[in-house]
């Protein structure tokens, strides 16, 4: 059974059909990159998979459960890094991570993540005063602190400097190697090229192609496939 399953997913906001029958899945121990231009439906998909949005039709399953209204036990097994961070603004990162760690039965030690992600370098600065890339690092730590079995990362390296991006990609790889299902939404095919085992390419709320990276590429580069399938995809 795949760790994450999306079937015929449809979600409409007012006049916009954000998702128009998307179907794909992601397995444990692999990094699945969901690629697509802005407005392709990536973030909406992740929100449905987190139980933050309720699908109009179709279904989503995470670890075999419906995330809409899932219980605390299910939420503890799933980590999330939101595109806009979702961090309270007046708190210092170590205090925030310790607080979040307290919500889980068996969290990672916050100190490990603080040093691994270089957060200890700006530990005394409140979240509101951090740069975009620094905030992203705190958000990633927040997603991983509960030792999730599935983790959703929405544009994880946007705004990060090159060194931090490499470190984040290493961490993503380690998570997958440890058996975690990593789902990574991005519009950077460079990022997908670096870390993805499986690729899902979306545009206009539909899946254009999905599968192991080699079969998606089929002799072309990921960049070529991406542009061919999403041309005119930007709204």
């Amino acid at each position: 059974m795949p760790a994450v399953e999306v079937r015929d997913l449809v979600k409409t906001f007012a006049a916009t059909r954000a998702l128009d029958g998307a179907t794909w899945s992601a397995d444990s121990g692999r990094v699945t990159a969901v690629l697509g231009p802005n407005g392709a439906g990536k973030s909406t998909t992740i929100e449905c998979l987190q139980g933050l949005q309720r699908p109009d039709s179709g279904s989503v399953r995470v670890l075999g459960a419906d995330p809409w209204g899932a219980d605390a036990e299910h939420r503890a097994r799933v980590g999330l890094m939101l595109q806009d961070g979702g961090l309270p603004s007046m708190v210092k990162p170590p205090a925030l991570l310790r607080h979040l760690a307290g919500l889980y039965a068996d969290p990672l030690p916050p100190e490990t993540l603080l040093s691994r992600l270089g957060i200890d370098g700006f530990a005394g600065t409140i979240v509101r005063r951090l740069s975009g890339g620094q905030r992203q690092r705190v958000a990633l730590a927040a997603a991983l602190i509960g030792r999730p079995e599935v983790v959703f990362l929405d544009e994880p390296t946007a705004g990060m400097d090159p060194h931090t991006r490499l470190e984040v990609w290493d961490i993503v790889r380690e998570q997958a190697d440890a058996g975690v299902a990593v789902v990574l939404a991005t519009h950077s095919f460079e990022e997908a090229d670096r870390v993805a085992d499986d690729v899902v390419i979306m545009s206009h709320g539909r899946v254009r192609t999905a599968g192991p990276r080699a079969s998606v590429e089929g002799g072309e580069t990921l960049e070529q496939v991406y542009f061919r399938l999403t041309s005119g995809g930007a709204r």
Binding site: D84, L87, P88, L103, G146
Partner: peptide, 16 residues
């Protein structure tokens, strides 16, 4: 908290 997405994020933790 709503604007910063804090409510969304905490809604997905075991806190709910």
């Amino acid at each position: 908290d709503r604007r910063n997405g804090v409510l969304r994020l905490l809604g997905t933790t075991p806190l709910g």
